[in-house]
Design a protein around this nucleic acid. Sequence first.
DNA 1: GATGAATGAGCATTCATTCAT
DNA 2: AATGAATGAATGCTCATTCAT
Lengths: 210, 210, 210, 210
Amino acid sequence: MKTDLGARYKAKRCGTDRREQLVSIAMNVIATKGFEGLRFQAVAKEAGINNATLYYHFQTKEALIQGVVAKLFAELRKTRGFPKDKPATALQELRLEFQDLRDLLRTQPKLFIVVTELSLRGLRDPAIGAMEKRRDGLWRDHLSSIIRLGIKQGVFRRSIHVGSAVTSLIAQFKGIGYHATLGARKRGEVDAAIAEIARQVERWLTCKSD
Amino acid sequence: MKTDLGARYKAKRCGTDRREQLVSIAMNVIATKGFEGLRFQAVAKEAGINNATLYYHFQTKEALIQGVVAKLFAELRKTRGFPKDKPATALQELRLEFQDLRDLLRTQPKLFIVVTELSLRGLRDPAIGAMEKRRDGLWRDHLSSIIRLGIKQGVFRRSIHVGSAVTSLIAQFKGIGYHATLGARKRGEVDAAIAEIARQVERWLTCKSD
Amino acid sequence: MKTDLGARYKAKRCGTDRREQLVSIAMNVIATKGFEGLRFQAVAKEAGINNATLYYHFQTKEALIQGVVAKLFAELRKTRGFPKDKPATALQELRLEFQDLRDLLRTQPKLFIVVTELSLRGLRDPAIGAMEKRRDGLWRDHLSSIIRLGIKQGVFRRSIHVGSAVTSLIAQFKGIGYHATLGARKRGEVDAAIAEIARQVERWLTCKSD
Amino acid sequence: MKTDLGARYKAKRCGTDRREQLVSIAMNVIATKGFEGLRFQAVAKEAGINNATLYYHFQTKEALIQGVVAKLFAELRKTRGFPKDKPATALQELRLEFQDLRDLLRTQPKLFIVVTELSLRGLRDPAIGAMEKRRDGLWRDHLSSIIRLGIKQGVFRRSIHVGSAVTSLIAQFKGIGYHATLGARKRGEVDAAIAEIARQVERWLTCKSD
DNA sequence: GATGAATGAGCATTCATTCAT
DNA sequence: AATGAATGAATGCTCATTCAT
């Protein structure tokens, strides 16, 4: 991870590269030690650069954190397959959501830790709080459109209250991520629970008897 | 929630009282500023006592935190009405769980913040991690017994896989608490989502068609 | 100047003592190295105490500087013999002023350095600027009363414009202090100049021909 | 006084121009924030050039400061009309000195701030101290020659001790500049005091009765 | 001439903790 | 039970300076 410690002046990276590298490291540190354990110096050391060099790229610890937040959001949106080849039905879309969650949990479990850290930070840091709100808003919109589509397609029942349904869904998604990352550690158990909830939600939304 | 507000009212408390007061203050601080923002000196100041006096009661910052953790667990178990007048059916018990959650969210929203902080801490601090595990274990047992009871009573369907069902339930409970505290802020919205999920779970567990 | 470096916990001084000692040291440092060269750590080291202990007594570098300013003003007022046994005539009072200046220059030359540093700081730091203004105001009042007394006593001529006379006097006093401390370094030369200006002022104020 | 304000107008200047501009900026910074507040980077930014480019022109912060000092001396000598059309009498020359002072105070008040900063610096920085001494020496010579001329011309009295007279004069000049810049802020007041001191000095030097 | 990236040394400040009283 | 004074080990941040391009 370090480059060539011998030379006094390290191989210069182009600014953008460096910034991305540093943000990446910072995110790892947060996932490992939490925001509480994020030390500016540690990030610099990990990157194999000097304390002050880090300041050259991020004038503030806060700026570095902002970088992490930005990257995190990009990462999250990437997976939540917005532009994917359009799935035909709302049901398929819904299933895709659960699948995306399962994949993300498998491939980037650290992401969820950082997300949780961020949520807590958002309570105090208004800048982060705002971004959280924005993300939740986008998420709601996306899920709302799926449900409305389902109703229009006649797959979901008419009696669904879209708002509540979306809130429930989000709560459930968050719960899965939260519990999977911070609670039970057995992988299979989590996958089973995801499947369980997915079926449960599906049945609830499609239930004809209402 | 604070007692000695203004901090000039130093009627000598008996040791136990003091300790409880101090833990209470610490918990408030954590809820307000996070573990990251918990300062030993701040707790002392808030309590109107000297820096060193706090050390007389808690030999370590860690000890103070342990106190908070203990109090938190007591608080959580208190509400999850173990010893209440025995509800007749498993269904009633299940409904009670959701009701307890709603009540706790209403009366002690701060609790959920601290719980989340604790979960994150539990990832790094083994002592806390162990307590988390223990709490989750108790919770699982409790929910398992409810579901088994329901099956035995013929209210819940036979095909339920108890383990997965419990994991799902816990994930959903956590998700509700997590989202309610750190996400959407409108009370009504949350209540509606809880009701929605409760009905959904109920239908899923009781669904005869399986 | 240091006490007993061996022991881990130094002999505790009572707070007031310590504070005075620390302010005194800080003032010396300023006189020697200027405000620019005032390092919190250096003061602590000179006092033989730990970095953090200095912070126990002064929560801020600024607070320490405020202490220096306060001490400085006390020192200046001390010498500007307000409460001395009342001198009979205005002329005697005036001569006393020059004499005080000469004495102060002899006994506490560092004072003038610090005063000059303060004047410059006062341009930027409003807190110090205000104290400077206040000091100049008191000084003006004092000199005004002397001159008015002289006129009333018939020693000084009537045509004196008190305001201008006082401004001139203060400028001359400051000039002497300033030049003596930061310019020519031969003691005799300065004394001669003080005497010269004193006579010159005296003649100007008493000149009958106007 | 600034040139490239906004800093986007980087028409390549010839070397000397650039240097002068940079020194000028540095002097402004010193006048505004003091030596203490002089930052190499800030000067570069103000000039709209890069950090490292400033180092191309001045290899050291000290070098930049030397530039400021040099410019300052040039500025001071410029006004003290050495080569002007020769005034006839010593009295006229003396009056010219006061007039020059008044003009300089009016047109370049910042100069006096920087001069004071320099004087303080001269106490610690030998290079600057030497230049200060040299300047004072030239000044003494100039004033001495005036006084001697006056005596020869029979305008000033014989009993004058030239050395003391010069020291007094310099102290008074410095005092006026110092007080005008760092003390009283009303312009009229200062002008009156200058006039007052000028008349007083004149009378003292010409007084026949000795 | 000019620039972006990098560096080391230092500085004010914080915080958990200790100890004598 | 309580307190004032003291401490060491960080931590975020600044600044003059350097170097390859």
